[in-house]
Design a protein around this nucleic acid. Structure first.
Lengths: 197, 197
DNA sequence: GTCTATAGACCGATAGAC
DNA sequence: GTCTATCGGTCTATAGAC
């Protein structure tokens, strides 16, 4: 696992990555708006100046984290490009769960964004585009006959991702449920329903 | 419909109900913590003192709204007391969608509470108890054979209510979808899944 | 005159800017 | 380290509909 790690040189302390993770954790605890840069620096045990050495603004931290989450989600779409709609929907759901688990803090931050700044609005716009792409997949899967047609594609997409996104409210990687088991359960409920037959 | 309305007497203006609705709307826009009493009063076009005539504290406004949402949800459990687990689960889901639609602002507020005060923690505790009651219903439905047993009851409950609760993010009563159609779609996806058979 | 809703001046505490 | 703006909240008096 250390093959990709460049050897850490110079004065020890946070690097950009570590600082990002720590800051996002604080944002998720106290809210982005509710966290002042001073409070953030204090929580991380360093000075504001040290913080601004790694990021040029509080908002750049936010933007970096949101990009991480959005890149992950958009990557799922790109990776399933060639799959037929019915199977692709399942693959996208599974991939989204994977991204959510692998980047839980940044996705959590993303899902709480309400559009209070230009950065937040851009993130919301990318989310909207992602939703629309998934809606198109659902619609194609309906036309293919793989997905029931008596639920509007847009409503279905929102319900599916409502379920997936709610994972950030309770799922913890340290818990009893592994990521694969979680994805399996989500696919089972979303595609086949909870009712026995 | 006016039979139950006591004739409004005294100086015209907000009554407690109207003020509550307006305040909750503002809280949902800017966040409870992010809304100062001064800002709230300004938004509603009255003075802080007038506000405190109707509510004894900012937190009492929050508590009243959270109680409304929680009373609604708990009422669904009470109303389906005698139904057998399998059907009861469906009835609870349908009822929860109904409560969410009928009390969208207060439920929205409830779902954003993070436990920053005693009032918020009590609300979270009631939510937790509600979740546990539903989990027990799911488990009973599994033992009855009405619900698939290969998904943990607690996980299933969280996924179901993740889907239901996500409605506050996008559903608007003014939109094209009525409350009944919405409940139908939720039940369809939750119980029978999106896949055709 | 009674009822309800309202305004303005003001308080102590504190968080954030400088 | 100090200083100021803002926080939630209070007190007292009044405005308007029946």
């Amino acid at each position: 696992m250390s093959a990709a790690d460049p050897v850490r040189r110079g004065r020890p302390g946070y690097d950009r990555r570590g600082l990002l993770d720590a800051a996002v954790a604080v944002f998720n605890e106290s809210g982005y708006d509710g966290t002042s840069v001073a409070a953030l620096a204090a929580r991380l045990g360093l000075s504001k100046a040290a913080l601004y050495h790694h990021f040029s603004s509080k908002e750049e931290i936010l933007e970096t984290a949101l990009d991480e989450a959005l890149d992950g989600l958009e990557g799922v779409l790109a990776a399933t490009d060639a799959v037929r709609p019915g199977d692709r929907l399942a693959a996208v759901l599974e991939g989204a769960v994977g991204v959510l688990v692998a980047h839980l803090p940044s996705v959590t931050l993303l899902l709480r964004v309400r559009g209070n700044s230009e950065v937040e609005r851009r993130a919301l716009e990318r989310r909207r585009a992602f939703d629309q792409a998934v809606t198109a997949i659902v619609r194609a899967a309906q036309e293919e006959g793989a997905v029931r047609a008596d639920v509007d594609a847009s409503v279905a997409t929102r319900l599916l991702f409502g379920m997936v996104n709610s994972l950030v409210e309770w799922y913890r990687p340290s818990g009893p449920e592994g990521a694969e088991a979680l994805a399996r359960d989500v696919l089972a409920v979303a595609l086949d329903g909870l009712r026995t037959r």
